[in-house]
Design a binder for these strands. Structure first.
Lengths: 151, 151
DNA sequence: GTGAATGCAAACTCTTTGCATGACT
DNA sequence: AGTCATGCAAAGAGTTTGCATTCAC
């Protein structure tokens, strides 16, 4: 997965989509988008705030939440939780390809993974349930290589 | 799945496990366990509180959270979230058999489902990742039959 | 009697909202 | 000018914690 080119494309796509929908994308919103592109996978609002503050930006937390909410409503980011009671966000790729997350129960590290077999199983299963399935989240819990070694 | 006998067994198992671990299980804790057994799948702390209050119980919210936390640490309940920022709990069956959840994006209804193909896919996948996988959560998002019809 | 368990209220964290100010078209 | 966007501060919701009291053993 080439994060660099992917997120670069995502940034452009996002700015273009916002503009097309009539939203202004300067100021705080643009900084949040840049921050998301830079941080990439599985970031919290606080992490974005910390990054922007480090860079000397005066963007407020409220604007970050507002931007994330807007991006989520436009399907430009994916919002999810891994069981900490904190919302996490990451750039959503327009093609629909996506990954899931695995969380280290010891250090809290979150990593992404993709698995075609899993996607297929969920697809097959979706036909069998009474709900109309629109999306799915999978979270694996375990211990990361670093923490396994440190036991 | 026969909820009645399953939760009855679960209640006994839970009380026995607590006693064996040296915890007292009278008062608030027992009421929370009863409430969980009665409500069954995917309940919030508030739902337990409401049920107990209805029954005239004076159990406080803090005791409910403390009980749920203890049961979770002893693996007697499963704790999870479906993306609302609220923790949900349900009796955990000792055998390890478990189900996952599907959430209606319109009315918020949560239902359980089981799928062997999904479990197998996750099992196969677990061998391929660098983490030591200990558990997994799957959440499907969609629209329930009732809300589909009401569109 | 002693230590665990409980209830209440306060504290805390994450997130949302109200409102006045500032920026873009 | 008019509207949208922002920052700050306050409000909300869910959850946790401190402490005095109560209860089980």
């Amino acid at each position: 997965m080439d994060i660099t080119t992917a997120t670069c494309t995502w940034t452009e796509h996002t700015l273009r989509t916002l503009a097309r929908a009539g939203y202004r994308s300067s100021g705080a919103r643009a900084e949040v988008i840049d921050g998301l592109a830079e941080l990439g996978c599985s970031v919290t609002a606080r992490e974005i705030a910390d990054l922007l503050r480090e860079k000397g930006s005066g963007v407020g937390l409220a604007s970050i939440y507002r931007a994330l909410d807007l991006l989520d409503r436009l399907s430009l980011v994916q919002r999810f939780e891994v069981g900490e009671g904190v919302a996490r966000y990451e750039p959503a790729h327009p093609g629909g390809e996506h990954h899931h997350h695995i969380v280290c129960g010891t250090c809290g590290k979150v990593e992404g993974f993709e698995d075609e077999g899993l996607e297929q199983a969920i697809h097959r299963l979706s036909d069998r349930v009474s709900f109309a399935v629109a999306a799915h989240d999978v979270t694996l819990h375990g211990e990361c290589p670093g923490c396994r070694g440190a036991d």
